[in-house]
Design a protein around this nucleic acid. Structure first.
Lengths: 352, 352
DNA sequence: ATAACTTGCTTAATCGTTTAAACTAAATAT
DNA sequence: ATATTTAGTTTAAACGATTAAGCAAGTTAT
């Protein structure tokens, strides 16, 4: 049982394919199709269970109603969730999303870009990874519509939807300071991506504004590829140093997870041995014995808005550039609980 | 700067599009294209940065090199990970994957199926949800290639790749019994899906084979839509009953997460107040203060094999039916630690 | 009575690719 | 000298849809 095409319907109805196309696209009025024939065509279409061939439609119209979503790291639940939001929102508007993860590799990102361009996606939503500036320029040159999501390049003029990372990190710092911590570290990726730099900058300014002198040993930068071992070393270092930190901000979910694993191994107690604030969000943060304070980014809004921007641009390519920074919200939990004056350290919980 | 087509190249080279097509598809030998012209065509193609139009190719060939992946619930990290595996494996073979989640709703699954059929996917990999039997029959009737993944319908003859859930659950039961527990409950979805029934059956047989009489109050069936509140009730019940359970098997990841949240609220201690074994796998299980014993399904293998089966079928539609059940592995951790004879309950850890 | 609409339909080009078949000119065979 | 091969290339149909333009009736206007 082959799939029915317009031609099949036309044959059965004894008319040309043009008529069938008109009727099935609801253009019978403008194109003056006879009422009787229209009825007949609709009936036959139903009988044959006609489903239009999207390929043919797209080839003709130049629109595929498909969006390419390139994500820097889909194993990060924050991105996984944002991908869902994008997908849902796109579906609501009749678009299909093709998702690809480049696992923080610019090269893989290039591949994805090309594959998706060949597949004629109408536009892109991209969570950029380090070193992908040339790809952004490429898209701009070819006039391929796209919106950067969550991460952007301040030196390249593009549409983007992102979080105010400076502010988020500043708030995290202030929160820890208000909770009585003063030796506060931060762990981030070794990267010159803007969103990462902003997180570090916000943290530093929070210290500065509270007259805490930043100590170089408090900033730990870790390579994404070698995260597990470098996180361990970093934790060892911040705890051993003369300027031993009491609290730590983790600039990403992955860093926090790896750190928590190690902290568990070391039988350290959160927050008494080390207070914690993390970026990202996930079930783990709730279920950890000491729920983790985290920066909640406006995930839904970020996803929805990126789709909205892109669709507007697809409808009207002349549309002006759109850029928006959204505010994150600090969700305070026990992992950053206010330090009580001077207490004997509680007995660590038995993990054996 | 418009995208270059075969025609553009042909014009520049002063030849017909046929020649260009032959050369760019490596058919120059069979079709006897002159060496000089071939060179010229390749050069121009490179200069124009020619990228073939996948739509046109697909329309002509009837193959899109696209697989539809329909997942029952993408928010479950097990499925999210399996989706990644499928995507990677497909990409290796030159296929693109379009993912959709039906969130355990058969209706949504129908929509997805139709959308993807219209998009001319070459075949499907499907994690079925309850009530989607008719969809499976539909695919069979239309001869649309597909492989069921993780869940299947024993009464419908199809290709499938799944876990031996009976065995996995049986092993989980045995493990708990060996660890000294005898009042063992199980929490599952209220569902007549085969994989769910098998998990309950395996558990019951483990009890039976060890002469433990199953108590009806030990089986808690929860509706997916109303999970949060029903899990709480269920936990309350199994703890309050005359036959108070000492251990609990959670048939899915979602159930376990919700239960753990509630157990934390109740300040209950795992495993002393309640030992736990769960299906599914995720970071949470590692990071929980008492690492959770879980059934590790062969995620990688499941995903890879499903792609392999489907691609074989796409290459040769006459290929026989393929069905495979893979074994899961129980990863024993502290949440199901052997019960020590008779001990005073340890002071619950301070969660405040 | 004839020009000018209206109605209801068909024709044919187009999107970008593939590929069987046809064609031409040169080379080889008889 | 003529028939047959071979090499190198073009033509044109096809995939399934859309849509501007054309055409043949019938209707209305003048």
């Amino acid at each position: 049982m082959k799939k029915a095409s317009l031609k099949d319907i036309a044959q059965q109805a004894g008319v040309s394919t043009a008529l069938v196309s008109y009727v099935l696209n609801g253009k019978e009025k403008e194109t003056r199709v006879g009422e009787a024939i229209a009825q007949k065509i609709r009936l036959i279409a139903k009988e044959l269970n006609y489903q239009p061939n999207h390929l043919a439609k797209s080839l003709r119209s130049g629109k595929t109603y498909t969006i390419g979503l390139i994500i820097a790291d889909i194993s990060n639940p924050f991105f996984a969730n944002i991908a869902r939001v994008v997908e849902d929102e796109a579906k609501k508007n009749g678009y299909t999303v093709i998702i690809g993860s480049c696992d923080e590799h610019a090269e893989k990102s290039w591949d994805l870009l090309n594959v998706l361009i060949n597949r004629q996606v109408d536009g892109f939503i991209i969570v950029s990874c380090e070193g992908s500036e040339s790809q952004v320029h490429y898209l701009k040159e070819r006039n391929i519509p796209f919106v950067l999501l969550d991460r952007h390049f301040p030196e390249i003029q593009t549409d983007f939807v992102a979080t105010n990372n400076y502010k988020a990190s500043y708030d995290a710092g202030i929160h820890l300071i208000r909770s009585g911590y003063s030796k506060i570290g931060i762990m981030a990726y070794k990267s010159n991506m803007y969103h990462m730099e902003e997180r570090v900058r916000g943290y530093k300014h929070a210290l500065r504004d509270n007259h805490i002198e930043f100590d170089d040993s408090w900033l730990k930068e870790v390579h994404f590829e070698n995260m597990e071992s470098e996180v361990r070393t970093a934790i060892d270092e911040v705890l051993a140093s003369g300027q031993r930190v009491e609290a730590m901000i983790f600039a990403t979910y992955g860093l926090a997870i790896n750190a928590l694993k190690y902290i568990n191994e070391l039988r350290l107690q959160v927050p008494s041995d080390l207070a914690i604030v993390s970026f990202g969000q996930a079930e783990v943060f709730d279920l950890y014995y000491c729920p983790i304070t985290y920066v909640r980014q406006p995930l839904e809004m970020l996803g929805k808005t990126s789709v909205e921007f892109l669709l507007k641009k697809l409808k009207n390519p002349e549309e002006g550039m759109k850029q928006i920074l959204m505010e994150a919200k600090l969700i305070a939990r026990e992992s950053s609980k206010a330090k009580t004056a001077i207490t004997a350290p509680p007995t660590p919980h038995d993990h054996s």
